[in-house]
Design a binder for these strands. Structure first.
Lengths: 339, 339
DNA sequence: TTGAAAGCGATACCAC
DNA sequence: GTGGTATCGCTTTCAA
């Protein structure tokens, strides 16, 4: 049995395709009699007719697709913050009548290839999540192929794209300010060796450095760590040689890993070294000492969806940065508030 | 400047649209002269031409789209196991020439609506991840609209769909067997109150029950818990009244939460109560006592992608269950192996 | 070696 | 109230 089309519905209902289109799109008021409308609906139902999105978008000139572009290989490292955002964002988009779809740009691909793949789908908008490959040429490709809104979620927006700042530097700055304010001067910043996280870790390190600029006697340096117990144990074993009195551990997971390894080596937290994570995970509060963490507040999905909708309808809005995330310290025991 | 089409490329190159199509699709060998080919390529490049996927799929009859359907509201609760799978799976699909795309079925939608939304895209295949709404009618809708392969990733496959078993019951059974084998007879099973997790938690509870069937003196009952410290504290406060000597805590995160609350209440783990989680997260090993966990082995992404490819090319393969996950206990200190 | 043209499915203007 | 038909962008057969 072939796939039902508007033609088969028309045939079964004994009307023309035009009539079918009017009825099924709710444009039949005053054009088509109630009886005919009913016939059409019954026929569509009976055949299990579902309109063909490709055909419609070909005709109408736009697809209603909003592509949420993510770098496939780093998604797992994003954690609940990211996943929650995406879930809510998709729901919001649907409310606006768009179809939100997650598209992973696979590792090996150049920004150029990725942009081409996205452009082929003629999306109304592309939201490049942080880490997704998006350069000036990509933006140009997308725009030329009719994408109304290109939004980069995370700094810095490529030339021509709108931006929603997710200020990783501020995360580092907040952590740094907290530690420096508590009197720490030799600060290590954990830099995960895991692929794809450099986009986050580099600005976070820079943020700590900028906070330290105000303290002439402060030293800030990177500390490599892999997300595995052995790596943490190794790092902890040589810890005292590093001469650090505080560490900003990239995020809560790395912080927990490191803190445990330090404790197992007999290094007191926070006595000998203060530890700060980021993301404010629930699990971090379960450790003893409780983990101090930088809580990151993202622009809410609803706001981003509204922005996207606006940009789609006003495609000529000049590219700017539209919102920004904020970061706050949640001071707990691991950074000195002795518990 | 309008979006470039194959017509504009043809015009610029001074050839026909047919020639453009041949050249750009690599079907020009022996049909089009090298000089002409070059002209076409240059023209396409200059205009920044990107083919229109909708038009192509309309003409060719199929879209190369593989829809990975997820229940938007529960994704956050899935954790790295799920996210890793999806990332790798998408990469695999791309290698086969498909475009893998994640589509969240928003909370309020009926299975019927969701299926319609998917069917409009005319995907070559739909992979319904566990928790995605997929019933017999949905499968029928998809099939009628030309989807070759409908695969349900998680039990039970809806009638008409292929299945890849992710046996949640076995997870419970393995946990149960471990605890029973260690002599525990009054076993609590944590059931998250969070929406959307019932799909997992119910069969896990059933699995523990079935393991307990072999022990006439064993008692198994559900214990409700929300993913928040207050909920855990509340549960811990009334814990002794429950008279349990072991608990299977749904997954590692809930296990960690509960274990901490129990310890804070002065209840010894594993002395007074044994705790078992699931998913074998790295973080679970950081607690003291180390968390015993059920490690779940999913069918590898490459295998699933190969299956999908086969089903797309042989659409008439009768629906069956194609692979299954396995579960193994990772016994650590929290369930009695005193550390 | 190249081009004309049919047709994929849906929409919406214009005529009846 | 209803239907004919041009059109969106692309592929592919057939003819030149």
């Amino acid at each position: 049995m072939p796939t039902p089309t508007s033609t088969s519905v028309a045939r079964l209902a004994g009307v023309s395709r035009a009539t079918v289109s009017y009825v099924l799109n709710g444009l039949a008021a005053g054009r088509v009699s109630d009886a005919t409308q009913e016939k059409v609906r019954v026929a569509a139902e009976e055949l299990g007719y579902v309109p063909h999105a490709a055909a419609r978008s070909l005709r109408s000139g736009s697809s209603g697709l909003v592509l949420i572009a993510v770098p496939a290989d780093t998604v797992p490292a994003f954690g609940p913050l990211f996943t929650n955002f995406v879930a809510a964002f998709q729901a919001e988009l649907q409310a606006y009548g768009y179809t939100g779809v997650l598209h992973g740009a696979s590792a090996g691909n150049t920004p150029r290839d990725a942009a081409r793949a996205w452009a082929e789908l003629r999306p109304a908008a592309v939201i490049a999540m942080i880490g997704a490959p998006l350069d000036e040429a990509s933006v140009e490709t997308l725009k030329r192929s009719g994408t109304s809104a290109v939004v980069s979620y995370g700094p810095p927006p490529a030339p021509g794209a709108h931006g929603i700042a997710m200020d990783q530097e501020e995360v580092g700055a907040v952590a740094g300010a907290h530690l420096l304010g508590a009197g720490h001067r030799r600060i290590g910043v954990v830099v995960p060796v895991e692929h794809g996280l450099a986009m986050f870790s580099a600005p976070r390190l820079a943020g700590v450095r900028s906070a330290a600029a105000a303290y002439p006697d402060a030293r800030v340096g990177p500390v490599e760590l892999a997300y595995a117990e052995e790596s943490a144990a190794e790092l902890a074993a040589g810890w005292r040689d590093l001469g650090l009195d505080a560490v900003f551990a990239y995020n809560d997971e790395y912080a927990m890993l490191l803190m445990r390894a330090l404790q197992d080596t007999g290094i007191d937290v926070p006595g000998e070294v203060a530890v700060v994570g980021a993301d404010d995970l629930l699990l971090g509060r379960l450790l003893r000492p409780r983990l101090t963490s930088v809580r990151i507040e993202l622009p809410p999905p609803a706001e981003v969806a509204a922005l996207v909708d606006r940009l789609i309808r006003e495609p000529d809005t000049p590219p700017t940065v539209h919102g920004r995330s904020t970061a706050h310290i949640e001071a707990r025991e691991s950074s000195g508030r002795q518990g």
